[in-house]
């Protein structure tokens, strides 16, 4: 179990992680979801003892990462596939890691086999494609046969074949009963891999729930309404529905009332409508909606 309690990390005036508390349950795949710059990587670096939190605490089964005696046997991580010396062979790279945690060197060939790099084991890692580097990184994470695995955006930049491979691999790890904590900025990706979700934006927790729950909440039908008497209409609708405002064009977004009913209410109150359009939210849309206020960089 990974537990973060009121975790904070400030870089100067940037609050990369801000009062973040969550629990990653054992034996499940937990997605760590957030838009770019939300603080996912920073959180993962703090879990792994690379960055020191400004405040709060994060532990793995009650221990700080730095207190683990042979950490690779407890938790395997792939934060960045490029953390390899380009002139070192894949095998040498894994060998020093194995030796450092007293893992039998024979395990190196085992993990190379698992990720399908046996043939290039003695080739320099600098010549590897992104997909191969990613596999080498995963081999490193699996080296100590750890019960907990941490992956930071493992499908980033991969081609569809590579993405499929990683996705199947996650499932396999979960089926083996391991705890998998994997980050992504794509909800659609997470929907296919994760059972639980921890959603963050601007360093703060937005939601921690099961993926199923999150999706059903997030993709609720809603109706877009535009009217020159928006203020009055909003007041009336608010009595029987949840009304928010689209941040982009100011249209009313109504949850909980079907479009015909909204039209009738408008007619009863003699309110002119310029738009009345039922919407079926897509997953990505819903996610964007949820994290809109907390997106670091808007594309203008």
């Amino acid at each position: 179990m990974i537990q973060a309690v009121r975790l904070r990390k400030h870089y100067g005036r940037t609050k990369a992680v801000d009062d973040l508390s969550f629990i990653v349950k054992p034996g499940r795949v937990t997605g760590f979801l957030g838009p770019n710059g939300a603080g996912k990587s920073t959180t993962m670096r703090m879990i792994l003892g690379l960055d020191t939190p400004t405040g709060g605490d994060v532990t793995i089964d009650g221990k700080h990462y730095t207190e683990l005696k042979q950490p690779l046997r407890k938790i395997g991580a792939l934060l960045d596939a490029k953390w390899v010396h380009p002139n070192r062979s894949a095998r040498s790279h894994l060998k020093w890691m194995a030796v450092s945690n007293k893992i039998p060197v024979s395990r190196v060939d085992e993990v190379l086999e698992i990720v399908g790099l046996t043939e290039v084991a003695n080739k320099r890692a600098g010549g590897f494609s992104l997909g191969m580097s990613q596999r080498l990184g995963i081999a490193g994470a699996l080296l100590g046969d750890p019960e907990v695995l941490l992956f930071d955006e493992p499908v980033n930049g991969l081609d569809p074949e590579g993405i499929l491979w990683i996705r199947q691999f996650m499932h396999r790890l979960a089926d083996e009963g391991r705890t998998v904590f994997v980050s992504s900025h794509l909800l659609s990706e997470m929907a296919q891999t994760a059972q639980d979700l921890i959603v963050i934006g601007k360093g703060r927790l937005i939601a921690q729930t099961t993926t199923e729950q999150f999706i059903s909440d997030a993709t609720q039908d809603h109706v877009r309404v535009r009217s020159p008497h928006a203020v009055k209409l909003r007041e009336i609708l608010a009595a029987s529905a949840t009304v928010t405002e689209d941040a982009v064009d100011g249209a009313l977004v109504v949850h909980g009332l079907p479009a015909p009913r909204i039209g009738e209410i408008a007619a009863e109150n003699q309110i002119v409508l310029h738009e009345l359009s039922p919407q079926r939210g897509s997953l990505e849309e819903a996610f964007m909606q949820l994290t809109k206020e907390s997106v670091e960089y808007h594309a203008h």
Binding site: G49, L50, L79, D80, W83, H85
Partner: peptide
């Protein structure tokens, strides 16, 4: 090459 991070992880 950030292998220092890999080192500190191990």
């Amino acid at each position: 090459f950030s292998t220092i991070r890999a080192t500190f992880l191990a």
